[in-house]
């Protein structure tokens, strides 16, 4: 199982990078987004620049590669004609799904790092993280939470060919709804509950809380608990959907149709 997972990560990292669009998402897009963000926030404090420029543009890159690409990968498998083959191979289908998501997470994280280096070296952005160890642990948990969310979305793609249209439609609104480049509190009141149903909102709030100058454990309590709860909800939904997908795919017979 572990061998299949590692090979899937390797194969899909290679396959993803072979696509020019994915290369653009990983190498170029974060630089554009970071440039726009730094021009908007250049007059603000280093803390705000870290929260809304570095984390904001980094999260946009992460969203594009982890969630958006992982979900679309299923449709690509359908197009290649390999979805049916991996679905009926002895290794469980979820291993392949998770392998793809981990592969894209690694690329997404690299993209985040590129954006960070670009801002530090080209724009002289100064970064101070009061507690690097807690920040590192929170980052790992954020990556895990986004992986769970991505798993849930990938399942929708396994069953529906229409999901890609919806996904293309919501890529940019998610940047806004989840407050990647500004606090969610400035959004209309009726939008905010939607924001807090989505793990990226809690994830970026957690990293912002852990990187404030006056950091204390109490400050991350709310966003950490929020992220744990929504992640658990999406994990349960993911497991439930996975079982439904396994059953329904064999009834509808649409895995090979693209």
């Amino acid at each position: 199982m572990m061998r299949a997972l590692l090979r899937t990560i390797r194969v899909h990292m290679g396959l993803s990078m072979a696509r020019p669009m994915f290369q653009f998402i990983i190498w170029a897009s974060p630089l554009f987004l970071a440039t726009i963000a730094i021009f908007i926030y250049s007059s603000r404090s280093p803390e705000d620049i870290f929260h809304y420029v570095i984390l904001g543009s980094g999260f946009m890159a992460l969203w594009s590669s982890i969630v958006f690409s992982s979900a679309s990968d299923i449709n690509r498998e359908r197009y290649y004609g390999t979805l049916e083959i991996i679905f009926v191979s002895p290794v469980p289908f979820f291993i392949v799904l998770i392998g793809k998501i981990i592969g894209n997470t690694i690329w997404g994280f690299l993209s985040m790092v590129i954006s960070f280096i670009y801002l530090v070296f080209l724009f002289g952005v100064h970064i101070t993280i009061p507690n690097p160890m807690v920040f590192f642990l929170c980052t790992l948990f954020v990556l895990l939470a986004l992986t769970v969310f991505s798993f849930f979305l990938s399942l929708a793609f396994t069953l529906s060919r229409q999901a890609e249209a919806l996904m293309n439609f919501i890529e940019y609104p998610i940047y806004l709804i989840c407050g990647f480049m500004f606090p969610v509190s400035i959004l209309p009141i009726w939008v905010q509950p939607i924001s807090y149903l989505l793990p990226p909102t809690w994830a970026i709030e957690l990293l912002r809380a852990v990187s404030t100058n006056e950091f204390s454990i109490n400050m991350i309590e709310k966003s950490l608990i929020g992220l744990v709860v929504v992640t658990m909800i999406y994990m349960v939904l993911g497991i439930f959907c996975y079982r439904a997908v396994e059953k329904k795919a064999r009834i509808s017979g649409k895995l090979g149709v693209y």
């Binding site: 290679g14 396959l15 290649y80 004609g81 390999t82 083959i85 009926v88």
Partner: peptide, 14 residues
């Protein structure tokens, strides 16, 4: 195991 006809069902970029 099974083989479906046509050119698909493989990873062309591998």
């Amino acid at each position: 195991n099974f083989i479906l006809g046509g050119e698909r069902n493989l990873y062309w970029r591998l």
